[in-house]
Structures are given as C-alpha cells and as structure tokens.
Design a protein around this nucleic acid. Structure first.
Lengths: 208, 208
DNA sequence: TCGCGTTTTATAACAACGTTGCGTTACGCT
DNA sequence: AGCGTAACGCAACGTTGTTATAAAACGCGA
C-alpha cells in the first residue's frame, strides 16, 4: 500500500519562512533554490518534493502574502461614512504594501520571471478585495454614492491605490513629491467624486 | 592617440531592435544575451562592448520605450477643457501601454531582475509626464481646478492610470470586469473631482 | 518485529545563463 | 606605413533551475 504523504511540515515552513526573509531583505533576485536549501540545512531536491518547482514555491509565498494582506484589510473598522471608509481602507492598503515591499512586488508585479499564480491563488487574491467591494456596495445601496455600477467605483479605487503604491515602491516618483502628503488627498478626492451629492470643498481633508 | 568610438551603429540598432522584438513577443524571460547575439549573427562580447552589460542594454530599451511613450502623449491635442484633456491623455496612456505590454513592464515594473534605470534614463522618464503636468498646471491657473497643490492632482491622475493599466496588464482583474468600460468613467470621475465647481452628474460620461 | 512498497532526499550531472580573460582583427591618427 | 586602441570571436568560469539515479526513511500488513 502507498505510504501516506508524510511531508515534513516543519521543513516546509522553514523553507517558506527563509524564502520570505530572503525576498524581503535582498529582493527576488536573491532567492536561489541552492542558497535556500543550504540555509535550511537540506538539499534542493527537498524543495522539489515539497513544492514541485521554484514557481510553485513562489506561489506559496504569494498565497501567504495575500493571506496577511487580506487580514489587514479586513481588520479596518467601518465608520458608516463611505468616503471615510474608503480612505481608511486605502491607508491600510499602503501600510501593508510598505510593510513588505518585495512581497508586494511578487503579489502584484511579475517580479519573478517564471512565476504565474495558479487558479486557487488567484481566487484568494481576489477575495482580498472583499472589504473594498463591501464598502462600495453599501455606499451605493445607502444612496451615499451615485447610481454608478459598483464595479466601476471598485476598480477605480483599487487602481488608484495600487498605482500610487506601485509608483512609490518602484521609485518612479519625481524628487520632491511627497507621497504621504498626496496619498490621503488623492484618496479623498477619488472617494468623494463618487458621491451623489458632492460636498463643498473638493479635495478637502479627511474628516477623521 | 586613442581611436575614437566607431561602434558599429547598425549592429547596435540591430541588437536593440531584436531585443525589443524578443521582449515584446516572448516576454522579459526570453531575452538572453546568447540568443540575442546568435540572432544578430554576432557574439555575446559584442553586446558588452556596445552596451556594457545586460542591464545596460535593457536601459537602452527603457529609454527608447519612454521616447515613444512621450511622443504619443505629447501628440494628444488640447481642447481647453481641463477635464476633457485629462481624460484624453489618460486614454492615450492606456493605448500606448497596450501597444507594447512587455515594454511597459520594463518601464514601470522591475520585470528584469538586475535592471535599474540610470540617472539620465530616469530624467527622460519623468519628462514624459510633462503633458500631464501642463494640463494640471493650466487647469489650476485658469481656475477650472480647485486651489490644490498641482503635484497632488498630477500624482493622483498618474497613479490612477498607471494602476488601472497595471492591473489590466498583469491579469489581476476579476473575471467579468471590463476595463474599457470602466476606464473612461474612472478617469472622468478623477478629473472632475478636482474641479472648483463640481458639475451636476458625478461620474458622467466624457462629453467628447 | 520484520520487510515490502512508497515517499523523501542527497549526490551529481545537465543545459542555459551572465560575465570575463585572452587573443585576434580592424581601423583612425601621426 | 605602422603604432595604438577599440571591437569582437572563442572559450572558460561560476551560478542558476531542473532532473536522473540511488540511497535512506518510514507507514503498514504480516
């Protein structure tokens, strides 16, 4: 009879942990199976029996990254004001990305050549957006937001935060531009642009 | 006396062309110096004497990419209406990115491991944003936009288009979301959110 | 408790990569 | 004409991901 899968779970976690550390500290380029195996006191073939290939190992990191990301976003409290909630969620998004830039790069830019998330990982990634979808849905349903397709508001808000964070992380910003200053104002402007009844001061400060 | 640089310009262009083709058709992973040299009928050392290293060759692609990108953006005609101009510029931005996705990836995501643009290349990249900066500046100066720091409007608009395009190109969008539908509405909402006097219908259609 | 069957993993090899000495060729300048 | 340097082909080095082979580890029926 076949021997049941006994995969050394502690070794699996050790490899995953170490891989995460390598990526976070030295970037995607530094993640080599040989170094990783040597660090973990094992051999490269262990990685292959545990994960299948290097892209599959990265897929595990991808999943873990979205798990943490999703937990952070889901923990943002709601206030009932749709604009405020969007701004708060956007702030948490940026904080999460800045907490581990290299991991964010794996999740959203294809920073490791051969890697493509598998179907299950992609489903998890999309589930991360649930808090955003809920705020938008509630905002439209309660009449705070205009009668626009919720997908449009969702994708616009997501695009804005992702774009701003990407530009900041890739160092593409002109010198002198301060993202902390602009970020909240941009979020506030975007969120309030979907209001049914626009408020007086455009691009006003977050009232929280 | 030293012999002046006579670098075979046609070989240089041939290598650059072929490298661009390889990147555009098969992605950054397929760009190998050995294949490239073989394709061009030369040797790998030619690349080193012409460019210095692989990252330096990619830097040349990066520069060429921004040159074309900048030309496209600079060719967008102005209408005088700041919101309309922002939407038109955003549309040209997306079209340019979709015209050569892999090149866009080199320009904005770090899709080739060892590559970082040098100082001159980064200056050129920032110059590409000049049309955006001008529209925003004129919009604020003419009183169409609210009295907000122009950098905030610029970075917000850039972040939005870059984020939306990035999500689209990386395939991160939920199935069923149609970017062509949402894109223009998102741009319009963003642009009009900076108006001094908000118009009646938020997220209304582009009047062009 | 023994041993069969299967999984796991170490060793070593393979192909492909970026890079670099070494030697030769090609060409501008005096 | 010929000196000096740039340009470039050849071959090698070290490292990468991956895999063929073989040995070791272990669950389970006997």
């Amino acid at each position: 009879m076949p021997r049941p899968r006994t995969h050394d779970e502690t070794l699996r976690l050790k490899l995953l942990d170490r891989a995460g550390e390598l990526i976070s500290s030295e970037g995607p380029k530094a993640l080599s199976l040989r170094k990783l195996a040597a660090d973990a006191g094992t051999s490269t073939t262990a990685v292959y029996s545990l994960f299948g290939s290097k892209p599959d190992l990265v897929n595990a990191l991808y999943v873990e990254g979205f798990r943490r990301f999703g937990a952070r976003l889901a923990a943002v409290p709601r206030t009932g004001d749709a604009v405020t909630d969007l701004v708060h969620l956007g702030a948490a998004y940026r904080e999460s990305a800045l907490a581990d830039p290299h991991l964010y790069a794996i999740m959203f830019t294809r920073s490791i050549p051969g890697f493509e998330p598998n179907a299950e990982a992609e489903r998890l990634a999309l589930a991360t957006l649930e808090p955003l979808g809920r705020i938008v849905h509630d905002g439209v349903a309660s009449g705070q937001f205009a009668d626009v397709a919720p997908e449009v508001i969702t994708i616009s808000s997501w695009g804005l935060v992702h774009g701003l964070v990407s530009l900041e992380l890739s160092g593409s910003l002109p010198p002198g531009y301060s993202m902390p200053d602009s970020y909240e104002k941009a979020l506030w402007a975007n969120a309030s642009s979907w209001l049914r009844n626009p408020r007086e001061t455009p691009a006003g400060p977050d009232p929280s």
